[in-house]
């Protein structure tokens, strides 16, 4: 048994279990807030992209292209290091806010493409039906188009959420504590990379596994709604 303790001393992992637990909850929390932000930005960008107004759709298309062709790390650095004091806050963003905004902007671009595909999958008759009962544009979107659009693209949206959870590990580089940060803590305090990063990997796999179960469940529940 000695060689196992040599390679992976589970006692150290257990000793740091509270740290890893805090890391998991921070990762989930950061991902959830970023997800809400990304869905909001993504929906807005998707609707703008489909508008007839050339200024609106150009802004949206430019945003998506810019995000898709630069790495997330650079986006995090630009937002965290380069943004001057915001007039609304009266101070610079702290690292957590900066990280969440970067993650939300990044995932929002990918999600806007998915949501746009979802909106385009809604048949013309649905919109005409809503128009004929006298719904305004906002009502049509809110009650008819978006609910069906989201149901149609739930699987790719969940896939993108899994990517978002993994990407959230990058905010540890601007000093945000999350799951990967917990691994970095173990590495710096005990100089034990195995105990640190193998445990982190298992924790991420656990989160991924829960996501898979949830995604299968959601797909089964929505099976009837899809075309």
């Amino acid at each position: 048994m000695d060689w196992i303790l040599d390679f992976y001393n589970y006692r150290v992992a257990i000793q740091y279990a509270p740290e890893f637990a805090r890391g998991i909850s921070a990762t989930i929390w950061i991902s959830l807030v970023s997800l809400v932000l990304a869905l909001t930005i993504g929906t807005a960008a998707a609707i703008m992209r489909m508008s007839a107004n050339p200024v609106l759709w150009r802004i949206s298309a430019g945003y998506v292209q810019a995000i898709r062709s630069t790495p997330l790390l650079i986006q995090i650095y630009v937002i965290y290091f380069s943004l001057p004091a915001l007039p609304l806050l009266g101070r610079r963003l702290d690292e957590l806010e900066g990280g969440i905004i970067a993650l939300g902007l990044n995932a929002g671009a990918y999600m806007s493409e998915i949501i746009r595909a979802g909106i385009e999958s809604i048949s013309r008759g649905q919109i005409e039906g809503a128009q004929s009962v006298g719904m305004t544009y906002l009502q049509r979107m809110r009650y008819v188009v978006l609910p069906q659009a989201f149901a149609n693209v739930l699987p790719p949206l969940l896939g993108q959420t899994a990517v978002l959870i993994k990407d959230s590990s990058l905010v540890s580089f601007i000093g945000v504590f999350e799951l990967f940060g917990a691994g970095l803590t173990v590495l710096s305090e005990r100089l034990m990379p195995n105990e640190a990063f193998l445990t982190v990997a298992v924790c991420y796999l656990a989160i991924y596994w829960v996501m898979l179960i949830f995604s299968n469940f959601a797909q089964r529940r929505l099976g009837g709604v899809r075309r």
Binding site: A162, K166, L170, G183, N194, Y204, L205, W209
Partner: peptide, 23 residues
Amino acid sequence: IHALRGTPFLVHLYIIYFVLPAT
């Protein structure tokens, strides 16, 4: 595929760069 897809690339990098030499 699931194991690699379920963990961030950053974790793979650290495992290959820090954990493998520890073997």
